[in-house]
Amino acid sequence: MEKTSHLGMNRTGVDMSPMHSKAMLEGAERVPGDVEANQMLATRRQEMIMEAGTIGSVPMPGTLKGALSSVMKKATGKSPETFINKLGERLAFERMGVRLYEALITKCETLANQQVGAVFTIDDLRRIRADEARHFQLVHDAITSIGADPTAQTPDADVSAVLSSGVLKVITDIRTTVPQSLEAILTAELADTAAWELLVQMAEAMGMSDMAASFREALEQEERHILQVKQWYTQLMTFEAGGKTTRH
């Protein structure tokens, strides 16, 4: 496996072409900007924020179409659309999580060496993938139970997908290493855990204690994922930096 950090002909910095860089800087210093510095960027952003619409809406749940579920009846008056929005986000994120782990498994199977094998196994990754798939199912059932549509993309599901699009790009890039991919999945796991904490609180506040309990179980699993991934990533990077690594 290629090391994440190796020396080579990186040409991006000014030190790689001192003569050109000197000429470039001298030129830039001689010519000031042609418009006076001010807060134009912030001002235009403010104008546009004021004029903008929203990302989109939460789809109308079955309640408004006449198929009011018993669970949702309980939640009446407690802004169920916010809950549906966040459930939709979790559903989309867990579904993507399954795909992220599948891509990571392929990468690790291809690049794994003794060093990776000493830190974690492909089965470790498969177990986490299975957890993500179960969480997807859990949220799917929760959404269905309250009469909402698990196939709809809610606003926070959309925003969350934009947010995590970089994670997907890093893991599926054929040139990234195992530690680079682990760092990406760690970012996803950290966000995932915080989101499950919120969902547990929301379910409790809506009086859905069974749902809250099942969500708490998922949260505990996600917390274990963070600890594992963080430990693997740290061990691999420590090993690469010349330190010692130990089996987890």
Binding site: V14, S21, M24, L25, A28, E29, V31, P32, G33, D34, V35, E36, A37, N38, M40, L41, T43, R44
Partner: peptide
């Protein structure tokens, strides 16, 4: 093009 570059001078 003016809004984004007001007072801008490139620096390494």
């Amino acid at each position: 093009s003016e809004i984004i570059a007001a007072g801008y001078q490139w620096h390494p």
